[in-house]
């Protein structure tokens, strides 16, 4: 009989303890919320101690970025890429001239005169394997990974969250879309071989 009543007493008290905990959480709802509403709010990137300066940490693998004004269209990065995720198309133009309507500047920051106009420079980051191999051959140092030693040039970006998969193709060419046709040379006509003749 004593056990019967102690059971009742115990259940009431323990239930009240549980109710108190949830009520406290409800009352403190404004302070203690852990949810971050992702696209609008982000966690701060943790500062990590890697034993040496961030600037000398040159193997950071985040996202490829191209300073298109410095690119001379040599295709070395395309050849270096093991997964073929870089696509470049170029058109020959007069050496060293600015074509303002195509956002083309004839001289790189290193002083090299450009002889090619880039109509297309796409990097498909959904295919990229972050091997960093395209960075080394670049004669103008214009392709690099964002952040790390390059954070002065381009802020780090490691999220790649897009609504559409095709948004992961980063298009760097500055030639306006409606003018691409204008600078694309006409396709060469196929020479017909007259077999019968």
């Amino acid at each position: 009989m004593i056990r019967y009543f102690s059971n009742i007493w115990q259940s009431i008290t323990t239930l009240l303890i549980g109710l108190r905990i949830t009520l406290v959480h409800l009352a403190k709802a404004r302070k203690g919320i852990v949810t971050l509403q992702y696209p609008e709010e982000r966690w701060p990137r943790p500062e990590r101690n890697i034993g040496f300066s961030h600037d000398s940490y040159n193997v950071i693998r985040s996202r490829l970025h191209v300073d298109i004004d410095d690119c001379i269209g040599c295709l070395k990065c395309v050849r270096a890429c093991p997964v073929d995720c870089i696509h470049i198309k170029t058109v020959k133009v007069e050496k060293g001239t600015d074509i303002l309507e195509a956002n083309h500047i004839g001289i790189t920051s290193n002083g090299t005169q450009k002889r090619l106009l880039l109509t297309r420079f796409d990097i498909d980051m959904s295919e990229c394997c972050y091997c960093n191999l395209c960075v080394y051959p670049c004669p103008e140092d214009c392709i690099f990974m964002t952040g790390g030693p390059n954070s002065s040039k381009q802020e780090i970006d490691y999220e790649f969250s897009e609504y559409n998969r095709s948004d992961l193709i980063y298009r760097f060419a500055k030639v306006p879309k409606d003018q691409v046709e204008k600078y694309t040379p006409p396709p060469k006509e196929k020479v017909k071989i007259d077999v019968a003749g």
Binding site: T22, H25, A29, I33, Q37, P39, E40
Partner: peptide
């Protein structure tokens, strides 16, 4: 949501 320190249904942006 509030009892579990979450936000529940929200609209933002």
């Amino acid at each position: 949501a509030f009892m579990q320190d979450r936000l529940g249904p929200m609209g933002q942006g």
